[in-house]
Write a protein that binds this DNA or RNA. Structure first.
Lengths: 159, 159
DNA sequence: TATGAAAGGTTGAACCC
DNA sequence: GGGTTCAACCTTTCATA
């Protein structure tokens, strides 16, 4: 079954780019899928234009870079302003991700990077000044990411 | 000031790769930094080997791909088993990110992708069977990511 | 560690089916 | 839609300082 017009080739492309966006060439995917490299290039271009792939980025280990305080700040926003505040939070220096959740009090989760307590104090203050109430603040011990297996053709069966 | 031996060139490289890991060539960075392309390539290789850059991946808009249920599942793990369970959770089909937080009851945050309620039920059951107690479950309305500005040479001043 | 040069792979664009 | 061609670009490898 294809979702939203995504066929197996699209899914394979997404899966490969999710796994390694920089060292995977169109030709490699093309060989594995038995199509030409330009077909893969056309598909990638389409996926980017449709916004299905919204970007590519390097995963950085902040601790190794000397930023010991990779931290999750959980905030509460008034629902009508949630989206606006989430976007504003992204502009605060040190903020690397903002997740808006639908329900509950703690509806904006902000991931931030800091080198010391002063950084965190400033970020907390900045968020507060925007109108985000800081409900909780926790050091992130570890973060693991993985490509979504739903796009992996070799892993279709899910109980 | 350089952190952990990272100089301005390293930081610039990381920033560029965080912004667009696929369409940024060594040559482009080299021109902007007034060094040779080979130097940039050597640095990138070093950053990858040191584990400072741990990977590159495509950002996928799951909703556009037909997976309407991009969801945050907040779990509680016994502290001694937290890391082990977090890694195990990553293997559950549909799980795309696991964040371990240091303190508090809700110390494992799991981001999952599902097409329907059945997917979510299964994922919840799988996490539970691992030994992760599901404390809360929330639809993710939106997720914004941004490159860390601490690596951006044009943005060093932070109040 | 930074640089430069040559060979081979990769990309994007225009074009054809 | 998919495929071909080709010029421009990129990367790899190795040699050099």
């Amino acid at each position: 079954m294809t979702l939203e017009g995504l066929d197996e080739l699209d899914k394979k492309i997404i899966h490969e780019l999710q796994t390694d966006a920089r060292h995977t060439s169109s030709g490699t995917i093309a060989d594995a899928a038995d199509v030409s490299a330009s077909t893969v290039r056309n598909r990638i271009q389409r996926l980017e234009q449709q916004g299905l792939i919204s970007g590519y980025h390097a995963d950085v280990e902040y601790e190794s870079a000397g930023y010991q305080l990779y931290t999750l700040i959980i905030c509460t926003a008034p629902v009508p302003r949630r989206e606006e505040l989430a976007e504003a939070a992204l502009e605060v220096p040190g903020v690397v991700r903002v997740t808006e959740v639908m329900t509950g009090e703690e509806n904006v989760h902000v991931s931030v990077v800091g080198a010391d307590g002063d950084d965190l104090s400033r970020i907390g203050r900045d968020l507060d000044e925007l109108g985000l109430e800081v409900a909780d603040e926790d050091l992130i011990r570890n973060e693991h990411v993985d490509a979504f297996d739903g796009f992996d053709a070799d892993c279709e069966d899910r109980s």
